[in-house]
Structure formats: C-alpha cells, structure tokens
C-alpha cells in the first residue's frame, strides 16, 4: 500500500506554499536526525576512549578510536550464553506463536465451526481484562515452569490482537477456493497448509516479525520467572551491566577504568541485530500497522 498524497493538484505553487514545503523538509530532516542521534552517539561512544567519553568529547564519531571495551564485553562469558538463550527463545517462541496463532485464526474464521462466536468472545475478552501479574506468576509457578525455557515462551504464546488480525485476513480468502479443495479431498489441515498458508506468506511474515522482535526485546518475563543465570536472555545481562552496574562492581580496577565504554558497547551489542535487520524488513512492519488500523 502506498501512502500517496491525495490532494496534490497540478495547480501552481504559491510562494507561501513553497516556503512551507522548504520549512517542512528541513523540519523533518531535523526530526529524523533527532531520532537517529541516540543510536549514533551510543555507537560512537562505544568505540571511543574512556577519557573522551567522560570529558564529553564524543559527539558523532569515535574519539581516539579503540575496541578495548568490546574486547572486555566479548570476554564476558555470560554475554555469549545469554545471546544464545535469546536466539533460542526468539526462534522457539516465534514458532509456537505462529503455529497457535494460525490454528486459532483459521478455525475461528471457518463458518463450519459451531461455537466460534463464543470462542472469539472468550479470546477477545482477555484483551480487556486479565488476571494480572501475580496470579499469572502463580500459574506459571504452579505448573513448575519457573527456571525453564517454557516460562519464556508459553505464557505469551498467543497474542489475541495478532490472532484477530490473522482471522480477519483469513476471512478474505474466498469460500469457493476452500470448497474446491474440499471437493478434491483435502481435509482442514491440508487446506490450511497447502492452500491458505502459501497465500498468506506476507501476513505470516509480518506477524512473525512482530512476535520475533517481541521475544528479542522482552525482559520482564525473565525477571519474573528466571533465577538461574545460565538461562538469562541478553536483555537481562544488559540491564545488569548498565542499569544495575553489576559487571563494574565485581570486576578489577582496570575494568572500572573503562566502565562507560563497556556500558555503551553492551548497549550496541544488544541492539545491533535489530538495527541490522530492520531496514530490510521494515516494509512488513509498516504493512502490519496498516492491517491493524483498518477496523473490521
């Protein structure tokens, strides 16, 4: 979908209009720069000399560039382990998310299913009312999921919002297509996997991306459910290093000398994968928001 201006006429452009357009362009350039600047600064600082950071000499580019901070960060064994954990949670979590979301959305979109209105209501109700943090925590605890991978992927296995989006999308698939497949002897699973899903790859990608980013960025479930350090995801390590000052407190004095550099380097390490992938997949994200904004 293209966002084109609907009211661009071919009429001549007045002087005030031109002034506005120039101002607008400059203003949006400034906004864009303000959006990017924190990322630029963090990256520059992570490659800079500690003294330069402390003295405030860093603005856009690394000052007296060096990579010692990264060496220290990469030598921190928990970092690699947490990176692996985050990758695992992201892949496993997204796979579970997608399977359940597709199953739920497809069955709720089929008229053949008696009681789908009730089930839909049952699901959407949870968007507006929930048991809250402590009861959910007690359920997870009661199931013995604490300090397991499952605590990271099961409590949020379905996003109701995404499932309803997907259901709306599935409803647009013509009934005739489904009926034709049924005549050819396809069962519901066959129809879903062989006909419907190949038609919905773009939507699947979009929803999968949102789920994946959610897993990559999530930290609160880990705070609630994980105590074992070897299960910690990356975001928790980042929180410990920067917000709780942990790596700095129990390290040698040479590391303290570059505490700031280490913090900036850890921030970069945590956000780099998202930033690298983002430009290539952002069209899916834009699309996702637009599906969501169209009211059913």
């Amino acid at each position: 979908m293209e966002l084109t201006r609907k009211h661009t006429g071919t009429i001549r452009v007045s002087a005030s209009r031109r002034a506005f357009l120039i101002f607008n362009t400059l203003f949006l350039l400034l906004i864009s720069f303000a959006m990017l600047y924190p990322v630029i600064y963090v990256t520059a600082a992570s490659f800079s000399d500690e003294l330069a950071i402390l003295k405030g000499e860093v603005f856009m580019l690394p000052v007296r560039p060096y990579v010692k901070a990264y060496e220290k960060v990469f030598r921190y064994p928990l970092l690699w382990q947490s990176y692996g954990n985050t990758l695992l949670y992201t892949f496993l979590g997204t796979a579970i998310n997608l399977i359940l979301t597709v199953f739920g959305a497809w069955s709720l979109s089929q008229k053949k299913m008696v009681g789908r209105r009730f089930f839909t209501l049952m699901c959407t109700f949870t968007m507006f009312f929930s048991g809250g943090m402590i009861p959910t925590f007690l359920v997870v605890k009661g199931l013995g999921l604490r300090d397991t991978i499952w605590a990271m992927v099961l409590p949020g296995a379905v996003s109701t919002y995404n499932m309803i989006l997907m259901r709306t999308f599935f409803r647009q698939i013509p009934d005739s297509l489904v009926e034709a497949a049924e005549l050819d002897g396809c069962r519901d699973f066959g129809i879903l996997f062989r006909i419907v899903l190949p038609l919905s790859l773009a939507s699947l990608m979009t929803i999968g991306m949102f789920y994946a980013v959610g897993h990559w960025n999530s930290y609160f479930p880990a705070v609630l459910y994980l105590n074992k350090r070897e299960l910690f995801p990356l975001q928790i390590i980042l929180r410990q290093v920067v917000l709780l000052d942990e790596i700095v407190e129990n390290s040698s004095s040479t590391e303290n000398v570059m505490a700031e550099g280490i913090k900036y380097a850890t921030i970069v390490v945590a956000m780099l994968p998202i930033l690298c992938i983002y430009p290539f997949v952002q069209r899916y994200f834009v699309k996702g928001v637009m599906i969501g904004s169209v009211k059913e």
């Binding site: 359940l100 199953f103 739920g104 497809w106 069955s107 709720l108 089929q110 053949k112 299913m113 089930f119 049952m122 699901c123 949870t126 009312f129 929930s130 048991g131 809250g132 402590i134 009861p135 959910t136 007690l138 359920v139 199931l143 099961l154 409590p155 296995a157 379905v158 499932m163 069962r187 519901d188 699973f189 879903l192």
Partner: peptide
Amino acid sequence: YLYLMFLPVLLYYIIFRYGPMLG
C-alpha cells in the same frame, strides 16, 4: 479437525489467561 486445531489455543487461553482470573 477445526476443533482439533483450536484445542491447543483453547488450552492456552484456559490455562494462561483464565487460570490467572481464577487466581
């Protein structure tokens, strides 16, 4: 088969969304 498909989703909602409400 649709119910079979919906079953895991239903279980999820009962356990992780309605369970806490009981809680």
